[in-house]
Structure formats: structure tokens, C-alpha cells
Design a protein around this nucleic acid. Structure first.
Length: 108
DNA sequence: AGTCGCCACGAAG
DNA sequence: CTTCGTGGCGACT
């Protein structure tokens, strides 16, 4: 498998998200100084470190679930929601119930 | 090396 | 809702 330096940055940033909180694609992008949140999603989509990198803790800026395991809808999203529920992050109608669960990065 | 099309997004209209 | 901007990457030439 080939992991680009950009991807490493993404995975490192995502690994910082504490259990019980979630970050947005845009938030991660900003932290790693990437102008395109979409590129972050692309990196997470091919996440080779499935268990190590908690990609399920990354949602869209609209507070919707975004994608999971390469899917934007379907069973994968349902599993993502259940996974987060197990960490205390609840969703309602596919949207984050409590925005206070959002994680924001500190420094560089 | 240059080009093209695809993305788990986001902001604006 | 639709449209446009954006950065990164695989596939093709």
C-alpha cells in the first residue's frame, strides 16, 4: 500500500480526536492546512489504518454523518452512527444532536 | 510530464 | 435544492 505524506497528515490529525467527540472534514482540513475538505474525505475513504485511525469520528460541517467505508448512505452509515452512539455521541435524524460534542484542535 | 475525471466537502445562490 | 470552488490522486496519453 502506498501512503502519501498528505494522507499521513490526515491520519495523524484524525487520531487526535478524543473518544466521545467528533470533528468535521473542514476542521481537519484547516488543522493540516489543506484548502479542500474534500481531499480529507478522499484520504479517509481509503484509510488503511481502519481501527487505529478513528475515521468514524469525522462528520460533515452540516453535522450530518458524511460517509463511512466508502458509502454516503446505507448500512455503513448506520454502523457509523451506532459506533458513535457507543462513544456517547448521539445523532437524531442523521444529524448530530449536541453540537457541543464537536472537537476543535488546539495549536499546531 | 501533462491532462482528465473522480471524490466520505463546503460555501454561496 | 443547485452550482461553483478547491486540493489531491489514479488512470491515460
Amino acid at each position: 500500500m502506498t501512503v502519501t505524506p498528505f494522507q499521513r497528515r490526515v491520519y495523524e490529525a484524525v487520531s487526535r480526536i478524543p473518544k466521545g467527540k467528533v470533528a468535521t472534514y473542514g476542521g481537519v482540513a484547516a488543522f493540516i492546512k489543506c484548502g479542500s475538505p474534500r481531499a480529507v474525505g478522499q484520504a479517509l475513504r481509503i484509510n488503511p489504518y481502519a481501527p487505529k485511525v478513528p475515521c468514524h469520528r469525522v462528520i460533515a460541517a452540516s453535522l450530518k454523518l458524511g460517509g463511512f467505508q466508502g458509502e454516503t448512505r446505507g448500512g455503513a452509515i448506520a454502523r457509523k452512527e451506532r459506533l458513535l452512539a457507543g462513544e456517547g455521541v448521539r445523532f437524531e435524524s442523521g444529524r448530530l444532536s449536541d453540537p457541543r460534542r464537536l472537537f476543535s484542535y488546539q495549536g499546531g
